[in-house]
Design a protein around this nucleic acid. Sequence first.
DNA 1: TTGTACGCGTTATCAT
DNA 2: ATGATAACGCGTACAA
Lengths: 350, 350
Amino acid sequence: MEKDITIYDIARELDLSPTTISRALNDHPAVNKKTKQRISEAAAQMGYRSNLFASNLRRQRTNTIGLIVPRLDSPFHSSVIAGMEKVANEAGYNLIISQSLETLQKEIANANTMFNSRVDGLLVSLSFETETLEHFENFVSKGIPVIFYDRVAEHKECTSIVIDNLQAAYKATSHLIEQGCTNIVHITGNLKRNVYADRLKGFKYALIDHNLPFSEENVIISKMTEEAGTLAAQQILEMDPLPDGIFVSNDTCAVSCLKALKKANISIPRDIAVIGFNNDAISRVVEPNLTTINYPGQEMGEVALRVLLLQLNGSRDNVPSNTINLRSELIIRESSLKSKSNAKKKAVHL
Amino acid sequence: MEKDITIYDIARELDLSPTTISRALNDHPAVNKKTKQRISEAAAQMGYRSNLFASNLRRQRTNTIGLIVPRLDSPFHSSVIAGMEKVANEAGYNLIISQSLETLQKEIANANTMFNSRVDGLLVSLSFETETLEHFENFVSKGIPVIFYDRVAEHKECTSIVIDNLQAAYKATSHLIEQGCTNIVHITGNLKRNVYADRLKGFKYALIDHNLPFSEENVIISKMTEEAGTLAAQQILEMDPLPDGIFVSNDTCAVSCLKALKKANISIPRDIAVIGFNNDAISRVVEPNLTTINYPGQEMGEVALRVLLLQLNGSRDNVPSNTINLRSELIIRESSLKSKSNAKKKAVHL
DNA sequence: TTGTACGCGTTATCAT
DNA sequence: ATGATAACGCGTACAA
């Protein structure tokens, strides 16, 4: 637990000034090559490590990016984070991560921590409860870029990164209709969140465009968890007549719903066709395999971070555009194929 | 983008010294209650935020904990991290996270970044490739606590948090034997890692204790990914005779293997019984449902962080013990039940 | 090409 | 109960 070596120690050792040490270690051009060499050797030999805090304090930036996510233990968010970490790491940024656990209160607390930690930029996917973006105003007014991804909200100064949820839902619903479904249930999450509101819209528009009636009773709002899927299935089993198709806003919930329906001797897709959302691993395992929307989590994470880096390094108004749409696609599997003749898998690019 | 408010600004405003401001904001006992009140009001009103870097620089600690994980997009690690974040957040610590992507090179780079970021403590789950712990010596010799979890290695100064992999594997294998299996294949990962080496031992000991032969040819070493499971299945299908049981070291791999076997018209569990490891969501979805070892990810994360906090706050030698074992259990589902008479689920606590 | 001197914002120490 | 001062380690404007 000996004392840390500083650039002063190296300076003294080599009979140079701390300035030169600092410059050499930062590869400043105006330092003699031989001197640089000597310095970096001495630094290594003396066990020097730079003090990021002192550096941060001096330079007023942290090389740290904050991330607030609803839950860490979700396949989608895991892959997003994996993508973010990869890009951040390559660019020499640290990622500090916290979860709101879907509550506004924790989201606010986390935002404040991030603010005090003086992150250079902030990435956010909103909680279920969030209604306003007040708790991010601190950042905005200080010129700290905030980027929303997936669960986003409109803000004049902030970029959002999403997929076209409306269109994805429209395609999924249309696919069900093409398979002969006329009475479709939609299970989705809190409508405060764009992802669920947009999917509901896509669902509704698809029905309307195909001259099918839209009824509020066919929309089930749930927490989108495994348990919620089971509950939704019970609710559906009590419907009379039974629906002939279900479009669920995530795979976790879709799969547990599908399982519960099967247990009740409903044949999938013959009696009821099912479509999920996300293309989690689970969707390729359930029987029948689940038709779903492929959702590019890792890519979304990478893009979010790249855009943030652009905003950090480039000119302040280098924002590519206010909203970035990533491509998603409908992956058709057995769970929605009523007409077995179509049974070859095909991917419809949105 | 106005300038930040500092304690000097508040001091000037209230005609007090910066010292008093600092004390008040840190709730130091030796400050008048009324003064405290005035100060915190002024701080709030002026939009003050503390500068953690200056504070860190001065106090020589960061309130930040580093985490190095093989992959972020794994269900197990996600739940571990969720547990860690929860405890860290409550204790006022930030978590900075990086992934080694199973390579030694990245693990070393990440460790160095963490070291330079001056984390107060480090949590590590080792990559496949890691053989020595040299890259953590920096931390140890500076008295920065390092804790290994799940994928651990022996180090005199470091605590490890694990489950009893040997015993878990022993129970799983014994269960297969009790179901009548006599020719069991074991699919596992890189034997440099304790988790895989110990599971192999447990597998081997169970065979021996039940007077069954152990053969190297029945051990498949793989990357334990989804693809690896499919490949392993192919390899198994070429065995003659076919095995009658498979014990796989994780669920992802077990499930893809199981799926490939089913596709080849192998009946599970009748022809071949299968057991996985981890109790991922996927294990409850595959048909037949997968027998597996329940692995307390979230809890492991929480425990790891609590132990670290103890070492950070408590006396330097407050280490509860060098290795902490968490309980795991065998969860018996259909994939291993050859004798349908036993078909009620039962949990065997290890 | 190298050096001097100061400031970043906080907290510890010592004094009052 | 409050204040003056120095120090944490680095980067940079300015000087040489």
